[in-house]
Simulated assay, not measured.
Amino acid sequence: MKRWIVVDAGNTEVVVAAFHEEELAGRFAFATPANITADELALKCKQLAAEAGILGPVNGVLVGSVVPQLDAALREGLRRAFAAEVAFVGEAHVRTGLRIRYRQPKELGADRVANAVAAKALVGAPAVVVDCGTATTFDIVDEGGDYAGGLILPGPHMALEALAARTAKLPKAPLARPQTLIGHDTIESIQAGVFWGHVAAIEGIAERLRAQLRAARFVLTGGLVPVFADALDIEARLEPALTLIGLRLLAERRFP
């Protein structure tokens, strides 16, 4: 049986998952550190992997990182933790199977590449991935199966932080789905504005994309998608582990 470790190193957290063939066998996560040594990361991953029951021989480790300052520690720490070769999305020998039509392909985040790879495999082309996280991103696979580009907008937590930081009297409000559309105090008003404003932004962009890509299938993913999924009036497949699935597909190609 083929086994791979895949790592989604994001701005907020690092998710480490084990796949046995196509089965997600286990996972763990920890907050993305501001800095960490390879030794510290290896120890942390060994301990958490043992607790999650995913230590053992693997064919390879595939990392999708959007935190370049951690890449050196990730490469060496994961190699020590799992005693296997480590590869990163974006390296020449990691084949995506996608023609990436970005002006500067190296600017495209590894998570967005993985999402596009997974969406193409799961729902075909054309496809649109909506990923709700630190930022909310739209990634488009066109009719020919190429990565066509996308959209990026600030995530809801960014909006909440900006309102508190850039105004004199508005407090920091927690992200929550409001009970009513109209807020009846300042906190409720902020929550209603950020929540329903984000819903409207996602629905509005989706409507415009559907007009342009009429046959496109939509996929929803991301750490914040459970907050918004029930409120969104768009036909879409909910796939919380989409990025991990995409990384697994890339790992399978890199470490057959």
Rank of each mutant, 00 (worst) to 15 (best):
P57I: 06
A92D: 14
D230I: 13
A110G: 03
L181C: 10
G149T: 11
T243G: 02
R237G: 05
H93G: 05
R166L: 09
I190V: 06
L170D: 07
L78F: 05
K120M: 03
I187D: 01
I245F: 04
V141P: 01
H184D: 09
G60M: 13
W196E: 12
L153G: 06
L62W: 04
R27G: 07
V63F: 03
V94R: 08
G124P: 00
H20S: 15
N59Y: 11
E91D: 08
P240T: 11
L170P: 01
H93I: 08
L98G: 07
V89M: 03
D71Q: 10
T167L: 06
K106W: 07
A206I: 12
K2E: 11
V66D: 05
K2F: 12
D111S: 02
G197K: 13
L74Q: 04
A38S: 03
V225G: 01
V58E: 02
R3D: 04
I100K: 02
I182G: 09
W4A: 07
E235I: 09
T167P: 02
K172F: 14
A118S: 05
E40K: 03
V123I: 14
G246P: 04
D8A: 13
A164M: 10
R210M: 13
V194M: 01
I36M: 04
A38R: 00
G64P: 05
E188D: 13
V66E: 09
A241L: 12
A211R: 15
A176K: 12
L250M: 14
P226V: 15
V123C: 06
P105T: 11
E85P: 05
V219L: 14
V63Q: 02
G197R: 12
F28N: 01
E85I: 07
A162F: 10
